[in-house]
C-alpha cells in the first residue's frame, strides 16, 4: 500500500465553489485521466460559497503539471495551491480500535502517551485511540500499534496550510 508520507506524493489544496457535484467532478477527472489519489479531504471554507479539497496525489501516475492544469480546467475550481511538505503544516487524524487484554493494556496506553494521542473509549477488551499529527508520525504510530490486534482503523486524509510567512506556489489562479 502507498503511504501518505511517501515522496512520490504531492499535496494540492484546491479551492472549489461549493456546488452540487463538485467533488464528483474532481474525482471523475482523476479517474478518467488515470491519475491516482492517495488521500482526499474536503470541507467548507471561507463561508458557504467555497470548499477546500486537499488532495494527496501520486505524481508517478502523471506529471504534477498535467494534473494541476487539467484540474484547473474544471469551471468550479477557483484556485490550486501546491503544498510542498517543508513549506507547509500538514495534519491528519487517525482513530483506531485495538483489541487488547488487561496484561497489555498499559503498553498501549503508554504508546498513546508517548505519541501524545488520546484514549477515546475504553471497553473490557478494547481501546479506541486517536492521534493527530503529520503523516509520517501517524505512519510510525500505526506501525507500532500493529503489534497489537487492530480491529478498526480510519485515517482522515491529509489537510494542510502553507507555513506562516511562506508563499505557497499558486499553480493556477483565476
Amino acid at each position: 500500500m502507498t503511504r501518505p508520507g511517501d515522496l512520490s506524493h504531492h499535496t494540492l489544496a484546491v479551492l472549489v465553489e461549493n456546488k452540487a457535484g463538485v467533488l464528483a467532478r474532481v474525482a471523475d477527472l482523476f479517474a478518467r485521466r488515470g491519475y491516482n489519489i492517495v488521500s482526499l479531504a474536503v470541507a467548507p471554507t471561507r463561508g458557504e460559497r467555497f470548499s477546500r479539497i486537499t488532495i494527496v496525489v501520486d505524481v508517478e501516475s502523471a506529471p504534477l503539471e498535467q494534473i494541476t492544469k487539467q484540474l484547473f480546467k474544471l469551471i468550479n475550481v477557483v484556485e490550486i495551491v501546491q503544498l510542498a511538505p517543508e513549506e507547509s503544516v500538514e495534519r491528519e487524524l487517525m482513530i483506531a480500535t485495538v483489541q487488547v487484554g488487561q496484561e497489555h493494556r498499559s503498553q498501549v496506553v503508554e504508546l498513546v502517551d508517548i505519541f501524545e494521542g488520546k484514549i477515546l473509549a475504553v471497553g473490557s477488551n478494547h481501546l479506541t485511540v486517536s492521534l493527530d499529527g503529520g503523516p509520517s508520525k501517524l505512519d510510525d504510530f500505526e506501525a507500532l500499534l500493529a503489534d497489537y490486534n487492530i480491529t478498526e482503523l480510519q485515517r482522515s486524509g491529509r489537510i494542510a496550510l502553507p507555513r506562516i510567512g511562506r508563499d505557497a506556489p499558486r499553480v493556477a489562479a483565476g
Partner: peptide, 14 residues
C-alpha cells in the same frame, strides 16, 4: 444526465 455527461462536456449545470 449531469453525471453521464460530466466527462464529455466543458461544464454542465443542474
Amino acid at each position: 444526465t449531469t453525471g453521464i455527461t460530466r466527462s464529455i462536456t466543458k461544464h454542465n449545470f443542474l
